[in-house]
Design a protein around this nucleic acid. Structure first.
Lengths: 191, 191
DNA sequence: CCAAAACGGAACCGATCGGTACCGTTCCAA
DNA sequence: TTGGAACGGTACCGATCGGTTCCGTTTTGG
C-alpha cells in the first residue's frame, strides 16, 4: 500500500514548515509538494491550524526519538546529548528547533503552539534528568534545566552563525557545570 | 513639528513586528496603526523588505542603548547584564529577541536578515567583552561568547515559560562561570 | 506670501491566502 | 465482482497580500 494522503501531507509539512517557516508555506505549495488534492486535505484536517498542531506533535515524537538514539550512540551520558546536537548542527538542512521557531513566529496569543512547545521542553528536560540519574549525578531538576538552557542557547546561536561552534561551546560549559555538580554529590562515574 | 511619516512608520513597525512577527503584519495594518498614507510609505521605503531592514537596524541601536543603560543601572558588571535581562523578561510586552525571532521566521535564504542578526550578536558579544575587561576579568573572547549563549538561551526559554526564571537561572550559571574564570586570571573586583 | 514638498486617502492591480464544492477516477474489501 | 470509501484535479469564493497611481490637502521654507 502506497503512503496514504494524510501521511504524505504530514511529511511534506514537517519538511517545508521546518525549512521555510509555518506562515511562509501556503496550502498551494503543500499540496503540490505532497501530491495531495485540495479536497483530500480538508478530509483529513479541519484546516491549516489543525495540520500545524499535528505536525508539531509528530516532530515532538521524532525529535525525542532522535535525541535518545543519537545520545545513546555517543555514550548515553548527559554530555553525549551535546555531541548529538553538535552533529545535528552540522546537517545540511539544520534550521534550529522547530518549537523555538514556531513560538518565535507565532502571533501574540498562539496558546496551543506555546503549550506544545512548553510540553516539549519539559519532556526534554525530563529526559536529561534521566540521563543525569543514570550517570550518577545528584537528582537535581535544576541541573537538567541548566543543561537544557545550554542546548537551547546553542541551537539559536547556530542559526545565526551557521556552524556547530555554539554547540561545542555549550558542551564545554556543560562539562564545567557537571564537574561542579558531581562535587556536591555522588561521583559522575555511575554503577 | 509633529513626528514625520517615516519615523511613525518605523515606530509602528518596530512595535507590531516585535509583538506579532514580521510576516504576520501586513501593510494595511501598518498604515492604519501609523496613520500614514499608502503612497507616503512607498515614498520613504522601496518596499516592506526595506522597512524590515530599517526597523531591525533601529532595534539594534535601541537594544544596545537599552542594555548599556540598564546594565549600568545594575552596577555595570557582567552579572548586571543578567539583571537587565531579568527585568526585561518581566515587562508585559516581552517577546524575546527581535533578531532571534526574525531569523526563526525567515525563509531559507534571508541573507540580509541573517547578516544583521549575526552583526547584532557580535556587537553584544563585544559589549560583554568590554564589561568583562572593566571588571578585571581576563580578556577572553570565548568568555563573552559564553555569557551571550547563556543570555540567548534564557531569552528563548522565557518565551516558552513566560517568566524570568530562565534569566535568573542563567545568571546563576554566569556567576559560576565567572568564578571559575577569575581563578585563571586577575581578580574580578577591578578598580 | 506663495510655490513646492510632504502628506493622507482611496481606487485599483495581479497574486496568493485559507477554505468550499463538485467532478471523475482509483483503489480495496466485502 | 461490485459498491463505497478514498482520492487527485479543478473551478470557485471572499479576503488579504505587497505594490502602483492619482488626487486633493496640509505643511513648510525661501
Amino acid at each position: 500500500m502506497p503512503v496514504k494522503a494524510r501521511e504524505r501531507l504530514i511529511q511534506s509539512a514537517e519538511r517545508l514548515f521546518y525549512a521555510d517557516g509555518i506562515r511562509a508555506v501556503g496550502l498551494e505549495r503543500l499540496l503540490a509538494d505532497s501530491g495531495v488534492g485540495r479536497a483530500s486535505f480538508y478530509r483529513h484536517f479541519s484546516g491549516k491550524e489543525d495540520l500545524v498542531v499535528t505536525v508539531l506533535g509528530a516532530y515532538e515524537r521524532a525529535y525525542r526519538g532522535w535525541l535518545a538514539e543519537r545520545t545513546d550512540a555517543w555514550g548515553g551520558t548527559p554530555l553525549a546529548a551535546f555531541d548529538a546536537i553538535i552533529e545535528h548542527a552540522e546537517t545540511a538542512d539544520f534550521r534550529g528547533c522547530a518549537f523555538i521557531n514556531a513560538v518565535a513566529e507565532a502571533a501574540e496569543p498562539a496558546a496551543e503552539i506555546r503549550r506544545m512547545a512548553s510540553d516539549h521542553k519539559d519532556a526534554v528536560a525530563a529526559y536529561l534528568r534521566g540521563l543525569l540519574a543514570r550517570s550518577g549525578y545528584p537528582d537535581d531538576p535544576d541541573l537538567a534545566r541548566q543543561l537544557l538552557l545550554l542546548m537551547d542557547g546553542a541551537t539559536v546561536t547556530e542559526l545565526h552563525e551557521r556552524s556547530s561552534r555554539p554547540a561545542r561551546q555549550a558542551k564545554e560549559m556543560a562539562e564545567a557545570l557537571l564537574a561542579g555538580a558531581s562535587a556536591d554529590g555522588p561521583a559522575p562515574a555511575g554503577t
